[in-house]
């Protein structure tokens, strides 16, 4: 028809679109300024695994291989060993312990089956999610990376309180 109606139509569309934009500006922001600000994770978040120790610092893992058996992506590798020394001197809580405990994060799908399978509560999911590496081989984490006494925790997250609502979908805005 004419240029006039074109202009009117497009101006209407812009106003409609921008009204959404401007209406959001005064509202609370969802963006987390990671890594300048810590991310809030849920208490049951499944991040990098932690291998636990008991109150005396003995590794809880008894190398029963149930986690490796439960793992659908076959990413856990264990070598069991015998450590018949008395409790005070040995490495684990029992005289059977894992000499090697590797998780390949190139394969792990964070399903949490290993945690469910563990009869000794020796493995849980931690909150560490910063797993990116420059080298594929570094995705293989060993006991030194996984033990709770040795794993470096990232400063970039905080765990939500149990009653805290962190899920954006239901966040009251």
């Amino acid at each position: 028809m004419s240029i006039i109606s074109d202009i009117v139509e497009s101006t209407k569309a812009i106003i409609k679109g921008m009204s959404v934009t401007f209406s959001k500006i005064p509202k609370e922001k969802w963006t987390v300024q990671y890594p300048d600000e810590p991310v809030t994770v849920q208490p049951r978040y499944r991040g990098q695994h932690l291998l636990h120790v008991d109150e005396n610092g003995k590794e809880k893992c008894v190398a029963c291989f149930l986690c490796a058996a439960a793992c659908p992506s076959d990413c856990i590798y264990i070598v069991a060993a015998d450590d018949p020394r008395p409790y005070e001197e040995r490495i684990g809580v029992d005289n059977r312990y894992a000499a090697v405990y590797n998780i390949d994060y190139g394969r792990c799908i964070f399903c949490g089956f290993c945690v469910e399978a563990c009869p000794k509560d020796a493995i849980t999911h931690g909150y560490n999610f910063e797993l990116s590496v420059y080298n594929r081989a570094d995705l293989l984490k060993t006991k030194d990376d996984l033990l709770i006494t040795k794993q470096k925790q990232s400063p970039n997250y905080r765990v939500a309180w149990a009653d805290e609502d962190v899920d954006s979908e239901y966040k009251v805005v």
Binding site: A63, C64, F65, A68, A69, A80, A81, D82, N95, R96
Partner: peptide, 9 residues
């Protein structure tokens, strides 16, 4: 073979 592996492995 004490504490070396599990049979299914």
């Amino acid at each position: 073979y004490r504490h070396q592996a599990r049979p299914w492995e």
